[in-house]
Design a protein around this nucleic acid. Sequence first.
DNA 1: TGGATTTGTGACAGTCACTGTCTTGAGCAA
DNA 2: TTGCTCAAGACAGTGACTGTCACAAATCCA
Lengths: 209, 209
Amino acid sequence: MNGLRERRRIKAMRSIQERALDLFDERGFAAVTIEEIAAAAEVSPSSVYRYFGTKEGIVVADEFDRMSPEALKDVLDPGDPIGSLLQAVLAYESAPEGAAGSDGDGEGPHAAKSPWRRVRYFFTEPSVRTAVCATLDRASRRIAPLIAATGELTETQARVTTNALVFGYFAALEQWYLDGGDRPIAAYVEEGMRPLRGIWPAPGHGHPA
Amino acid sequence: MNGLRERRRIKAMRSIQERALDLFDERGFAAVTIEEIAAAAEVSPSSVYRYFGTKEGIVVADEFDRMSPEALKDVLDPGDPIGSLLQAVLAYESAPEGAAGSDGDGEGPHAAKSPWRRVRYFFTEPSVRTAVCATLDRASRRIAPLIAATGELTETQARVTTNALVFGYFAALEQWYLDGGDRPIAAYVEEGMRPLRGIWPAPGHGHPA
DNA sequence: TGGATTTGTGACAGTCACTGTCTTGAGCAA
DNA sequence: TTGCTCAAGACAGTGACTGTCACAAATCCA
């Protein structure tokens, strides 16, 4: 499972994604074809589709979809989903994740632009935005059953509140982007989600400032 | 503005939509081409695109997008958005809206299948579902400023709660669909949104049954 | 180490959604 | 009726995406 094949695969995916973003930055998302991306990454167009499925998928690269049901169950506390989300965001923010080899771009808090460069397209390119919404919707459908399992809410309420949570996060992320990405995302999530706190009687009794 | 042109236009749109749904029901969404739909509706493919933009658009036909800013402001009480949503749903449910001429299908509560036939594809055809999400996202971006204008919430919170509202509605609609569409949609919205009531200190003090 | 097997890769052809542009004809106002 | 406007249709082109197939490289096993 961690053989040469897997390493090649990951390397190729990273290469495709970065070359693609380079081209998008240069000439705009729509003006770049899959063939050009494939050529720039020195793979075949078939491979691009195999890896990412769609052109938007190159940018979105749904981390949620990959996550196994167990891993999801692990990070999500159904009794305090907002807290879990905050935890996940905090963890994600401090993790480079892109870690593009030894290119060694800035090391500041989130000065490294490479992991966040993609986010720009979430909000500037309509088709990418749509793809993000679809990904969030898929994530929500995976999370809702876990929320419903507590029995504190009806199934309908579990679905509604899960969508509130997931797409609320999206809204917070957009605000973060629109503000220029200075303050940490977690701050936006915390602030934005505050009105939703009442849904889950927080066990941590953290009454916000 | 209410001339022959406009009437023709509306008639053509209805024709396209209905013939398309007929074909989709027969052979499945993916298996039907725009050309076939155009032929069945006796218009040119160009017109299908002119009217609906995309294949999914034929099914979604975003009522929200058309609504003028004034009309939106009119139906939405920024102090009680959940109540406004419920009102809108109730109004929409009792209005035939499709009213497909004199075909005179059943007249029951929501026995007329034609206005609701589309909804099925919202949840069975992935690409249509994605298009619905995009439409809801667009609606949210139009509503959020109105919510923010009250000043009761920060801009971030306005965005987050608006997304919660809009996509919460989507979740309620899905539950309604999954249950077979017997009970009215408004009941699902009312039930599903109950945990969100606390966000807006309801002026109507309506404590639900 | 060497052969059999699995699995990812590239090449290719095809489909179809969608985008422009241009011409023509039908509504509409004077 | 006579121009004016605007939408419908025809047409050609682009590129995203799909399915298939042969081949080669990685993995497995003896």
